[in-house]
Design a protein around this nucleic acid. Structure first.
Length: 203
DNA sequence: CATGGGATTGACT
DNA sequence: GTCAATCCCATGC
């Protein structure tokens, strides 16, 4: 399966955040279906790009379809897909995956066994897939990280929206999007994730 | 150049 | 429920 084209990312970031749920994130022999995203835009204070153009935010303000990877709390690498036109600072944070391929590699890198613990958080999935800071600015169309359209067996799944997690500024915006029924969504789960659809997993 | 704050996680009470 | 780990980077002196 080939990567999503750059045009996919060159539109309003909230629209891309919704569309990325169900798509497949792939790196270094490992892949997972995206089950949770968040949108960030320079117009609101929770976005790193809100401070304007700096050394850190130049990737966010650059062309779409690039990786924005940064260090969080000194420990974790968080992966985002840069969106909208060049000159706009916007990105989608990938917060959780349903593991699909390379689970043994994920287990080795995470030091854990349980499938639902491998990629159930933004710092966990980068560790599982081996995504580090050196991939900041890399091209999502050419690789080495790629995002592909949903697999044929991806189930039609309700999208649950809610406020973003772990932020203090602009916390009221409902820019978190989760696929209903997947246990790999990070905690806390939004209301309805457990109830709407029975928990399930892809093979 | 010093400081402080995170888009988190896992271990522990 | 609480809390520490640990580092990049924006800000201010």
């Amino acid at each position: 399966m080939s990567a999503l084209p750059a045009d996919f990312y060159a539109r309003p970031v909230v629209e891309v955040a919704r569309a990325l749920v169900g798509c497949v994130l792939r790196h270094d022999g490992c892949a997972g279906a995206i089950v949770e995203t968040e949108a960030y835009h320079d117009s609101e204070a929770a976005c790193h790009a809100h401070v304007g153009l700096t050394a850190r935010t130049r990737i966010l303000f650059g062309p779409p379809a690039r990786a924005y990877v940064y260090r969080s709390y000194g420990i974790h690498a968080l992966f985002n897909a840069v969106c909208e036109d060049e000159g706009v600072g916007a990105a989608v944070l990938i917060r959780a995956l349903e593991p699909l391929e390379g689970l043994d590699g994920m287990r080795a890198r995470r030091g854990l066994e349980r499938r639902e613990d491998l990629c159930s958080g933004p710092g966990k999935l980068t560790q599982a897939l081996g995504i580090e800071l050196e991939l900041n600015g890399s091209d999502l169309v050419r690789g080495p990280i790629s995002i592909e359209p949903p697999r044929a067996d991806w189930p039609p799944s309700e999208l649950i929206e809610g406020p973003r997690i772990g932020i203090t500024k602009a916390a009221e915006l409902p820019w978190r999007f989760c696929a209903a029924g997947f246990r790999s969504v990070s905690k806390p789960w939004p209301p309805g994730l457990r109830d709407t659809v029975a928990p399930r997993a892809l093979s």
